[in-house]
Design a protein around this nucleic acid. Structure first.
Lengths: 153, 153
DNA sequence: ATTTTTGTAGAATAATTTTCAGTTACAGGA
DNA sequence: TCCTGTAACTGAAAATTATTCTACAAAAAT
């Protein structure tokens, strides 16, 4: 396990919210030298604590304002069927997240499309086209209160 | 509505996966000059297409490997109760996402904690401490197949 | 046909990242 | 206690990158 101190936690907090700020700005906030910040970041990258850096875009600005969650039950649960389902579901670009979960349903997926018509199209031509899907239950997002990538430490 | 051409789409695709690559690298991939890339990025930032840049970290490396979804039903649905619930739920640092949804339950939240014991602690002392919660249903993540921030255009 | 706008390229400059040499703090072993 | 090795730090120099500026070309508007 990687040992992170309080400064690392602060640094991760800052970088999770804005990875474009300069080492100089970070150094000021953390009361460290630029090089110290630089070395800490490189270490976090080497250790795999920081996986990557991403630009986060506004779904509304790119016509993906309609978000839905869909829970899926498979007909059979053999390894073969699971593998096949997972392979197919990951092909779909509308699916931003996919989790294998406990409970009544087997999977929960998060879907980004333009509107309800597009969602219907997605369901009919793409999702239910995947073999071995038993039943599905969709929940449409009325309001996104929070969707953060930042883990508070 | 903002007009984005094919190059903007490509550019957004690249930046959503790796926002740390240099304009030079981007220019090569897009067959543009460095300045052209620079101007396009600034425009996407000005227009709000790019909301921000973030470091994405590995939950396992920071002891947040236990992920759960929890669906929540409120007792009452008056504006007052909704507002209060939303205010309280957003206070909780374990809650990375919170959506108001259609269907049987009112909200779905995604929770990151260290382990099942921490989840129990979270439920007992934090979540169910919020007033007006009717019932909840938790689903634990067995496997995260995909959790992307990148919208494919 | 002409003007305006938009997007682009290349060079110059400003700023930042990265490297380097040297210093300090500290834990473990003799 | 003292020594020694390690890890983390600092400040300056070098390398790279971002940003600005001027100019040009193509497309759209007048």
């Amino acid at each position: 396990m990687i040992r992170l101190d309080a400064i690392d936690h602060q640094l991760l907090g800052l970088l999770q919210h804005d990875s474009k700020q300069t080492n100089k700005a970070l150094a000021n906030k953390l009361n460290l030298s630029i090089t110290a910040v630089y070395e800490r970041i490189k270490k976090l990258e080497r250790n795999g604590v920081i996986r990557n850096y991403a630009a986060l875009i506004d779904p509304e600005k790119v016509s993906r304002a309609f978000i839905a969650f869909c829970q899926i039950k498979l007909i059979q649960h053999s390894e073969q069927h699971i593998k096949l389902f997972e392979k197919e579901i990951l092909r779909l670009k509308e699916v931003l997240s996919c989790y294998h979960i406990s409970g009544e349903y087997d999977y929960i997926i998060k879907i980004y499309v333009e509107n309800m018509a597009a969602y219907r199209e997605f369901m009919v031509t793409k999702l239910t086209a995947i073999a071995h899907i038993g039943s599905t239950q969709s929940s449409f997002v009325i309001n996104e209160l929070k969707n953060s990538t930042a883990i508070e430490l």
